[in-house]
Write a protein that binds this DNA or RNA. Sequence first.
DNA 1: GTGAAAGCGCTAACAC
DNA 2: GTGTTAGCGCTTTCAC
Lengths: 352, 352
Amino acid sequence: MTKVTIHEVARAASVSPSTVSNLLNGRTQRMQPATQARIETAIRKLGYHPSRVARQLRTGQVRAIGLVVPSVGNPFWGALARHLEAAALTEGYHVLLCNSERDPERERSYLEELWADGIRGVVLCSSLPSLDHVTPLLERGLRLVAFDRMAQAGDPPSLVNVTVDNAVGAQLATEHLLQLGHRRIAFISGSLGSINRKERFRGFRAALEQAGLDPDAALVSPDAATTQFGDVEAAELGRAAATELLRGRRKPTAIVAINDMCALGVCRGIRDAGLEVARDVSVVGFDDILLAELYAPPLTTVHQPLPEMAAAAFDHLRARIEGSATAGQSLLLRPHLVVRESTAPPRSKRGT
Amino acid sequence: MTKVTIHEVARAASVSPSTVSNLLNGRTQRMQPATQARIETAIRKLGYHPSRVARQLRTGQVRAIGLVVPSVGNPFWGALARHLEAAALTEGYHVLLCNSERDPERERSYLEELWADGIRGVVLCSSLPSLDHVTPLLERGLRLVAFDRMAQAGDPPSLVNVTVDNAVGAQLATEHLLQLGHRRIAFISGSLGSINRKERFRGFRAALEQAGLDPDAALVSPDAATTQFGDVEAAELGRAAATELLRGRRKPTAIVAINDMCALGVCRGIRDAGLEVARDVSVVGFDDILLAELYAPPLTTVHQPLPEMAAAAFDHLRARIEGSATAGQSLLLRPHLVVRESTAPPRSKRGT
DNA sequence: GTGAAAGCGCTAACAC
DNA sequence: GTGTTAGCGCTTTCAC
């Protein structure tokens, strides 16, 4: 319970604190082996552990980065957290995880906290269109990597983005449905407030247009930006929206969901309506979370290469924290579609 | 980019640093309104933000707790993280999240790191039978709440446990299967190394015994403690084990899975084998993660009251950190079974 | 090779 | 009411 300091170690080893500090910091070459041994013994005997807080105050350095996600309750973000942590750990960095619950104010205050804690680099999964709420931090020197958010015109120049091309992904998904013969395709999302969601919606419309369909006639649910749905509620939202849509007069034969959790909810909603996924209504998701493959039926979805993205995000961040920063290059990956069993030709085309 | 300190604020407001500090710490009553206003203006104009690191070094306090989980990749732990964070935030505490990947050494080193960072309370989701690897920390004064781990005989007295009664839960699950008429019931788990897993297995056997069945004849997979399967791989494990079991000569008609992720994998394995969940093989999970209800078929599972458990864990921790600690009371909650659609009578009993 | 000394930015007695 | 002072535990020149 007693806190043992560097001084006590020094006294026990009959050296000065600075010598102990030298040892602690690997400056062992200029030190007699005997001295070194004495110090090491003292450290062990006293059970000494340097205070990171004190060191940090002195050096201003912390080997840690922040990660702000909408919610680790969503397996996609949970998986990202794992991968980022793995990447960080190989370089001796730690990851502090924060849930913003997609609340801009909470996001900002977390960033502020992280800064006050001495953290100078964070991976932000915000996807809010504007990053105005964080520019003050950026000006103070915070290094930010935006994840899953396309670079925007007005973005601060110091910002690095790591994301999949969401428009392309959604387009791929929609084209797949189109090729199967679907014509009445719905799009289910929560609020379209975030950039990546807007992008996905854009890709959806683009595919429809290319197929000669009127994107404005497409079924979009909910019509306007709805209440803020968190990420955990994505499934609830999908379920409710699917139920609603399937009750309408112009039932869709296929549904593009904004992400996998939403897609799983959609599938549930389809079953609630007494229908069967794939046979009656096709569903495509986005993200390719682990559960997608496990689901019944296994979900056709757009794959995001999470491990690579996490590693890239970390590398960028570290480079810029450690100063070896060449001006940040953003990374825009091309996603691909994983066709599984939640999609099939519409009933009308069966057997053709 | 320039760091503004309390001194500069003091100078700008023509007061001393201590007065600024007083304001910062709410000791505003003994201060002329005019002074207070001057300081506040200065703070705003300079964009001053106190350094938490310095404050921490001085006071030895951090309003933060640690959370060590096997892996946030598992939605159950992700959900716990969210709930714990919610509970902590209401009291102004932050949560630092660490993934141990069920590696004792990693667990220990994380605890060590947290301690070095000034954190004095952590929620540990270890479930390793022995907590020997953390007793040194406990002796140094770390307050630990073990989560999802039954109190053990040799536990340090200062340890508080918050958990569901795993044996009862598994017994409930098994009895449900028994009542439906199942007799060949399998148990699928990863390594049985952790306490809660042992407990669940015990409950499973107890139910069998009470029904007059020979628990030793039960199908347990994998037979012995297997390779360490992480929490994300639980689903993989379930899938592989189910495949294996269903290929055998004594096929089970029902399966108790160690947790929901495993159960989802089991369901997938059942379908891989060309069978149907519930109709051909019943499956019961454990945890009641969000996905359980979304799955097809919705999973019958043992419910853990996560929000309450998280709140209790936090309250215990805070009480003991802040010293108002009456000797820690452990909390053992009674879980209940949620019957959904992954369980049904065995085919032989159908229609009786 | 090793030690003395000066802080990092903040807080909390204790003076005034 | 407000300022002075003395550190919290560590690192790091710069002497010796």
